[in-house]
Design a protein around this nucleic acid. Sequence first.
DNA 1: AGCGTACTCGCTATTTTGGGGGAGGGGTGC
DNA 2: GCACCCCTCCCCCAAAATAGCGAGTACGCT
Lengths: 239, 239
Amino acid sequence: MAGKAELDRILEALDATDTLDGLQQIIDQVCTVFGVDHAMYHWVDSAGDHYYFGTYPQTWVERYQEKAYVRVDPVVAGCYQRFHPVDWKRLDWSPKPAREFLKDALEHGVGNQGYSIPIRGPNGQFAVFTVSHNCDDEAWERLTERYSRDMILMAHYFNRKALEFEPERTPEQAQPLSPREVDALTFLAIGYSRAQVAKTLSISEHTLRVYIESARFKLGAINTTHAIARAMSLGLIVI
Amino acid sequence: MAGKAELDRILEALDATDTLDGLQQIIDQVCTVFGVDHAMYHWVDSAGDHYYFGTYPQTWVERYQEKAYVRVDPVVAGCYQRFHPVDWKRLDWSPKPAREFLKDALEHGVGNQGYSIPIRGPNGQFAVFTVSHNCDDEAWERLTERYSRDMILMAHYFNRKALEFEPERTPEQAQPLSPREVDALTFLAIGYSRAQVAKTLSISEHTLRVYIESARFKLGAINTTHAIARAMSLGLIVI
DNA sequence: AGCGTACTCGCTATTTTGGGGGAGGGGTGC
DNA sequence: GCACCCCTCCCCCAAAATAGCGAGTACGCT
């Protein structure tokens, strides 16, 4: 059973680690200490790219990527929309692809219970920290209630290390946008036409165009839609 | 001095609260228990909109909004780019507006020391949890080292309540898009024109248009750019 | 005082999107 | 069996965005 001392030891080990192997060892320890079958950190990247470590069977991890399950996985979708940790039971497993995904997961050794914590970093970074286990609902509830705070902290610390180890994944520091550029992109992102935005900002449409072009340039975007997408994933604008 | 029991009490009180007054009382307690002058939760919104509670003097809070200091505040800017908690000393206070802001803050009773934790939620939500105090560097370092984990958890729990109290700020349940719609929006979001997307997906441009229109309809979007923005903030597509 | 950057305005031509129709085949769930 | 949704294809025309020129003011930093 894990008390404060065990948690402290894990977090301190996490702070001190500077290799991926070290992370892997610590996540193994997490399973032992907290008495669960699996623990997994999974950084969900833009183009179906992944960064992860944990105790899921290699066969499952490969299959997950091969089948592009990230597009189906209700855990990822559910975490993306929430701030709270998520018990897998509370997700929507009704769509057929989700049910097939679950069946496949169980066959590959993933536990029937799971608890996942969304983690968000700068520039739109998004990751999930999951613990999974095979047990009945009651035992699972006791476990999640008891350790939910510890898991939040562990998720936080694992993400620190992931960010530290993968600096190149942190999207290049975008050139900051000027306030007017932010205004322009923000209104465009909520569907205003250029004419409407210009009117809203009380500037000529031409001036507005200059902002949009300048923002496009700074963001390395080839059209407005692209600029909006990049600005959003970099966290430069919020809708 | 705050031990595990005090933290637990605060977090449990947080879980149980369902009024803004309750939050205010708890954040007052946080100051007492952790021995700091101020604690503040501040949800930073894109449009300069704010949601906050804490112990900063009302005069300062008003001045902050009146002067639109959120655009200047190095704490907000620094937290926005980081995942780690931030000690104010490590921020860049060199720009003239920042220096003036700091001077103004000190005059309004904000502490000379501060420690701020970035918090990110779904839909680009961003908030900062700050504790501030008047003391020398050494005492401050002892305090932040000792309580940094506690503060991460408190930040998390305060944000939970903020999200709970402000449901209209959180996204409605996403309407699922078909795979082709997701494909279409995804390629549009990385800057492809309709012609390019159609070619990439090996379908006619007309077909593609049907997907885009259908996606627009499902998302309640009035044009493609809007649809991309909504799909991204709902987590339906990832760039 | 000079440099860079943000902000503001104008024109014309071309390319891309949006809105309005319609039509058929295939899979899933009730 | 029959909806219902998904995928695929086609027309025309109006509206909007992009691309190419250029020019002036104001502010802060060095």
